[in-house]
Nucleic acid binder design. Structure first.
Lengths: 249, 249
DNA sequence: ATTTGAAAGTGTATTAAGGACACAAAGTAA
DNA sequence: TTACTTTGTGTCCTTAATACACTTTCAAAT
């Protein structure tokens, strides 16, 4: 990373612009988001991971950097969901770097560019980094309060994800290489927040012809073991090339 | 408007954040965009209308303000399409206000938050304001070059509009009160950039039950006069309340 | 060894929506 | 009166959406 090496004006933090990431993970039951506990005392609401951007990077780069710096995540599915910028975001007074930047330029206020990202939960284990001590996966259903305007951002992210998955099969980014149809089924139900008929779901997914069954089955489960599948990226890219963008959910 | 009245830090321009608007209009033939000619000499590419934001306003307010200040348009359909922020946007060196702001804070760069808006073309006649001398409607098909990263913004706006109109009947914002089904039909074809079968289109639109036929007909046309319709806002709001968001295009 | 519990896996019939397609009717202008 | 232009309409066929129930296969407990 070049950002801290070169010392000139352009690599300074921009005190006015931050990125925040809604990092989604799926535990085979429900959808989760990675949140940060910034509080030393009780009762301080959790926040989305985010940071100010450098003047030397573009927005997507900044979001990737935040993902990597804060959670060690690389090459992650990322999608911008929009900019948020009430003057009231000025209440972000507990953020150290923001405070520092504010001292230099007190009239400014922050706008944030929000992203959502999809990660395999196994790729991020909260003990892995120093940051991670304060980070944890929280079920989206249980979130009723967040710091700053982060609840609004989360809700927008949920809606974006819903719309996106109705059009592109991005759900595979939340699953391991090998997965079962039931896991995929629950994933779609979690994101869309509605039940989907099992047989109809399986038929529809299989007709798309973007997953292929492996010769392997689940092991050690106290019930009929499930067939394992993997995502067929080549066939998916064929679909997108012909402009296919409707999965019918 | 409070912005220029109160004289304190918070009403200053923020040198780092601008809004740009992709203002769509429909002339019953094709889709157009309102562009500004910033050039005194020939060969300077056209630009989207936009400006820096004030620290005292939120992003949506800033976009509304730009629409009103630059084109006298009020109460216009507006939707954010995202933030754009290459460090290269620093090339925006011809904008006076930006230059001024840069003198105060030279290390900064601009990110822009882009919006698209839908207006009835009759609501904006380019002779109406001083700004307007340099503004004009340009067919989207004819645009192959724009200032800064505005071509990228325009393309994103076109894509957003396409997606949005497939889900919500926002096209009415581009039409006068009274319109014909053929006009609506051409509007959808212009936005979606593909032909739609006339009979199938009419059937689909009428089944939605969000337009109602007036007792009036077109006059003075050298062919069979068309039935006039108007948009039924109440019925549309009923639809959205029950979560309907798929128009099947 | 047998039973129990739990999830996997499978097919059909009905209804709704999408897509292709052609010709008569109503006005103006020449 | 004729020519021209756009409106307005219905049917058939194919594809997609939805609703619905029972058997299979494994582990664990008895």
């Amino acid at each position: 990373m070049k950002k801290k090496v070169i010392k000139n004006k352009l690599v300074e933090l921009n005190p006015n612009v931050s990125v925040d990431c809604v990092i989604f993970g799926f535990d085979f039951e429900k959808l989760n988001v990675l949140l940060i506990d910034r509080g030393t005392t009780l009762g301080i609401p959790l926040a989305l991971p985010g940071n100010l951007i450098y003047n030397s990077e573009n927005l997507d780069e900044a979001a990737s950097r935040v993902l990597e710096e804060l959670a060690g995540l690389k090459n992650i599915y990322l999608e911008q969901i929009g900019a948020f910028g009430d003057p009231l975001r000025i209440t972000k007074i507990t953020d150290q770097e923001w405070l520092k930047a504010m001292r230099a330029e007190p009239s400014a206020r922050v706008i944030t560019v929000a992203y959502f990202s999809l990660v395999k939960m196994s790729d991020y284990v909260p003990q892995a980094s120093s940051f991670a001590k304060n980070a944890s996966w929280v079920s989206v259903q249980e979130i009723s309060e967040l710091a700053f305007d982060h609840l609004e951002i989360l809700n927008t992210a949920k809606e974006s994800l819903k719309q996106k998955i109705r059009r592109q099969p991005i759900g595979f980014n939340l699953l391991p290489e090998k997965f079962t149809l039931s896991q995929l089924h629950r994933l779609y139900e979690s994101i869309l927040e509605k039940p989907l008929d099992k047989r109809n779901f399986r038929r529809k997914i299989q007709k798309l012809d973007i997953i292929e069954s492996l010769k392997e089955k689940q092991k050690g489960v106290p019930h009929k073991p499930s067939q394992l599948f993997k995502f067929n990226k080549e066939k998916y890219e064929l679909l997108t090339k012909i402009g296919f963008d409707n999965f019918g959910f």
